[in-house]
Nucleic acid binder design. Sequence first.
DNA 1: ATAGAAAATGGAAACGATTCAATATCGTTA
DNA 2: TAACGATATTGAATCGTTTCCATTTTCTAT
Lengths: 343, 343
Amino acid sequence: MTARITINDVAKLAGVSVGTVSRVINNTGCCHPSRRKRIEDAIRELNYVPNLNARAIRAVNSNCIGILIEKRSAENNFWLQSLLQALLQYIGRTKFHSYIQVVDSQADLNQAMRLPGNADGLILIGRFEADFFAMLERSFPVPAVTYWESMPYANGHSLAVNLDSGIRQLTEHLLALGHRHIGVVGNSLGADAEKSALFLRRIRGYWPDYPESLIACAEVTDHYHRRGAELTNALLDRHPEVTALFFLSDSFVLGGYGELNRRRITVPDDINIIGFDNSCLAMSMVPELTSVGFDFEVLAAQLVCSLIAAVTPEIPPPVFDAAKAIELEFYPRSSTRKVGTRG
Amino acid sequence: MTARITINDVAKLAGVSVGTVSRVINNTGCCHPSRRKRIEDAIRELNYVPNLNARAIRAVNSNCIGILIEKRSAENNFWLQSLLQALLQYIGRTKFHSYIQVVDSQADLNQAMRLPGNADGLILIGRFEADFFAMLERSFPVPAVTYWESMPYANGHSLAVNLDSGIRQLTEHLLALGHRHIGVVGNSLGADAEKSALFLRRIRGYWPDYPESLIACAEVTDHYHRRGAELTNALLDRHPEVTALFFLSDSFVLGGYGELNRRRITVPDDINIIGFDNSCLAMSMVPELTSVGFDFEVLAAQLVCSLIAAVTPEIPPPVFDAAKAIELEFYPRSSTRKVGTRG
DNA sequence: ATAGAAAATGGAAACGATTCAATATCGTTA
DNA sequence: TAACGATATTGAATCGTTTCCATTTTCTAT
């Protein structure tokens, strides 16, 4: 385990001072071309890589974005992977680098001591406790962004989400295909509650008699798959006439799908299904799942852009207008089809 | 954006020197109880959090484990999430903290400049190019562990995997249930090739006439789900007599499952299916997927323990014998059942 | 009460980078 | 050629921490 190569080694080999090397690396100030070449050669020859820790201590900004994921959000969901991928890809196109950290917002805040805290700004994914924000504000006073849930945090900025327009698109899609008996399977907690309420209001606008019993929601905190199967089972017993199922979270889809297979009900021939989240599951299933959800590339771009804007006030305004609400996109795929038609 | 609180602030408030504060925080050396309490109070009052960057520069070890994920492995697979979760959980029980970084092993190695490189050791997930190891060896001379694939890297250590014993368990399970016509769906590239070869050898031990046409493998680099459906389709056309399907990677399961649904073939009543990887998909499907794969908690423990052992030679030998090959576990679930029985 | 050992503490160097003030170099013009 | 401004470069201070060494305090045993 040889010693790590430092900027001093480079300076010595190139026969210049460390300050000059630093300036060449960061492209700040000028440098004589011949000298610059000598330094760059030395860097290449030694395989020098700057120590980002040392840089982060001294420099005003570390060019690092921290991605904090709430622990529970890291479990039992299929969209996280897609979002992370999009975030990392977008960050990769900027001058920033990033690290990911999973934090347990409920646990003893002492564990927060483990936060590297060298980031210029934070992207928060999932729902954090208020205590956590308080700790963040005191101990890591850097800008932060999230979406959906607002942040009780001075340096925090939350992107608004236009949930209702997504629900509207979905409702209109199903109605346009000729569906009337649309069942809903989901959680009665958290975001799902908001979704089902919006859906109910929407569909009653078209069909005032839509019965609440078509909505099969229960309090679910784990075993989403199994509960998805159970809820689907109960719903189909209660309303055998349903022609479409709306799963409020993709986590419920697999269970519901299994129940359909058990009953030898085929998608989309016998029944249409639609998900929510646009997770990787939606694209991986066969037939592919029609879904409402974020365009993760857009969401990632929004989050990163508005964070960078907050971190470096001198840069021009971000590509995306952070003040504008994020729209949910509608992704029609092969799990929905006009009623009565066959593939 | 107030200034960050440093160890100096704590020392001033507690009326001691920074050295003493540092010693109290790190529990190194002794400290008078009354003074210790005063310091701890000051830390609490100021919400002081040590700057891990500064620590990492000075200290011989940063108590940080870097998790490097090869980019392609982060896409289109369902086991990564389970493994990461297990890794983070296990690391959380040690004195180490961690960061995750997705690196594109194929991209210009300049992007490697973005590696924080403050880690005491690295856990590598996925298949990296040889160039990457060379870069790692020169620029980040810290111990690293991975599994399955061996590492052409001086400081690297790869845990061996006993693939064959996992295949044996699976084969014996299916034969014990009465299956003879077992179809295989998977990739003809990479690890899947190894798996199918081992399976073929195994099953011919019991059933010498097992025809190679039951193995439906093709070169797949993306759209695993769709290819899974296509391969399953072709296989069922060719061999309508199959009573069990072995999916070499869980990525193929969703597509295959969709094809079964389309044909109104029910699992496990009409056909049994078995996966490989023990991904979160296996537990999320209904019926739950019988699978062969790593017990991710064990794998995570092995990886972390052997890395920690490499990082701190003075600690007692790890809980797990790093020299011993990792066994694949067999997880019987409800997607397999004795032939001819009904639920 | 006191010597000596043990424990606790303070002060300063060091880690590897950036950055700023001071200095050196260069090219241009009077 | 000397003076000047512009540009390059150096050297040192600095960031927040750990760690070493010297010093002071406390404890124990005579």
